[in-house]
Write a protein that binds this DNA or RNA. Sequence first.
DNA 1: GGAATAGTGTCTATAAGACAATATCGG
DNA 2: CCGATATTGTCTTATAGACACTATTCC
Lengths: 301, 301
Amino acid sequence: MGKDPLRDKQGLTEEEFLQKYDISIYERPSVTVDMLIFTVVDEEKENYRKLPEKSLKLLLVKRGVHPYIGQWALPGGFVTNDESLDEAALRELKTETNIDDVYMEQLYTWGDVKRDPRTRVISCSYMALIDSRALEVKAGDDAVDARWFDARYSVLEEKKTILEKGFSFERVIKITLSNDQAKLEATIKIIEKYSGKAVTVERDVMVSNGVSFDHAKMIQYAIERLRNKIEYTDIAFNLMPELFTLSELQQVYEVTLGRELLSSAFRRKIKDMVIETNQFTKDAGHRPAKLFRFNPNWRYL
Amino acid sequence: MGKDPLRDKQGLTEEEFLQKYDISIYERPSVTVDMLIFTVVDEEKENYRKLPEKSLKLLLVKRGVHPYIGQWALPGGFVTNDESLDEAALRELKTETNIDDVYMEQLYTWGDVKRDPRTRVISCSYMALIDSRALEVKAGDDAVDARWFDARYSVLEEKKTILEKGFSFERVIKITLSNDQAKLEATIKIIEKYSGKAVTVERDVMVSNGVSFDHAKMIQYAIERLRNKIEYTDIAFNLMPELFTLSELQQVYEVTLGRELLSSAFRRKIKDMVIETNQFTKDAGHRPAKLFRFNPNWRYL
DNA sequence: GGAATAGTGTCTATAAGACAATATCGG
DNA sequence: CCGATATTGTCTTATAGACACTATTCC
């Protein structure tokens, strides 16, 4: 580090200090990564002339071990001492989906003392967005089963309360996760409290039907982030195949945002994010659509 | 969890499983919190008729122990097993500044394997914004000295490179931290690589002059986040006293954003975020300004 | 032609950038 | 009046919402 090695109060140089350093004197929590793996897939067509509806899917695994045995959880696992958090997240992703060529982003680290009944566990959540064509899901080690769930997000309530010395915003969000095998529901209350200068954000799980640990909070957080970020970044394209129509792209926006968009405004907004090809869809039962690809030169401000 | 207790492959109920669970079988990293405590203070007036300039300050502590002894670091410390991450962050904040009534937000968790030479340490960074009137800084336990540093952020380089199978954006950011005692400099290179579908963001410390660990990365990340968030939230008001003029508020925006703003546009933008009082500044040497307070009813979309 | 989707144009509302103009204090 | 800051107004530009209109394919 220097030429003249600095010494501490015990007269040790950094090298000497590190040799003596006893790693066991501090209590250590366990650290895990939990993965929020999203994709968008086509649902069945009702009518061969209609476009298929799309839906936002989240991958969950059925727990084969205690705690929460038999319930559904986010894929994840312990971070080992020889891998970074990102590496652990990539490893879990690969284990669960057999894909590693995806968009991935760290979201938030959950550190409540009692969030895992086994022992103190701090969990870092990551979001991954994958193109549904590349799907080949397999169950991981301690998972009985991995399945895609249709993810729905709805705001049940929003209210503001005046406190003596400030105010608070409360939102109640309902998360519904369903497939042909199971239907899970959770409601999360988010309380933002402004008292004086202090701001605290608290997330409480009010109902959690079949969702393990505090994973319902993580799911709510992730969908909120996804919805925000899709508005001003290019992350939506990670959910798309190489070539797509603008209607398909719009559907992906609509299904992640949970609301309908006007096509003219949508096309204007994403105009610079795509490059047109000279290919078209075929046999659609209606007017063919031009195929586009992502414009890698697009850059948000 | 249910009435008929579920049993795992070993035939254990959840209760039995938890009693037997051996917490020592997994290697555990240490977890710390690191605090980015910002404030904005008035610099000396050059001329009694001029307004004082403001500057963005970051709190650093001088390390009194190995490693990085004698260098400056973010205040922080180990998370104990009986406190949540937020509680640990609040505790550190209180220890360092003697304030607990502040805005605080989790930023990012840093998990590279070699980021601490002692042992595996995962560090969760938090940002706190405080009103400079409430300042009374004292040094913490393992710190010799805690000092405010003038924080400056500048973009040295931005470039885009085409790769065989994608492209990458590189940004080089220079962080300068100075006060009358020391001048620290660090440059961070941020590489966003888009190859195929995979996106990786890597932050490398190119130069770190007197800044310990990977704290220069954390500082760069925090200022970037602060700059983004001040544009669309009300966090700036956490840096303000109860009553302020619009010019003072504008100065706080300018010093955190690192650029000048046009006052008419600025006033339009923040018009709904403030409530006017019937008080004015006095003895300013020029036209007095109306004092405003934050409007707690303001809410971003 | 009709069903269904693809794609364009235009009016309006709102927000932001640029900059000029006016107001008000202390001295 | 002058220096310095406070505050308002207005023109322009960019962006988003609403909605009407035209185009193209398969059947």
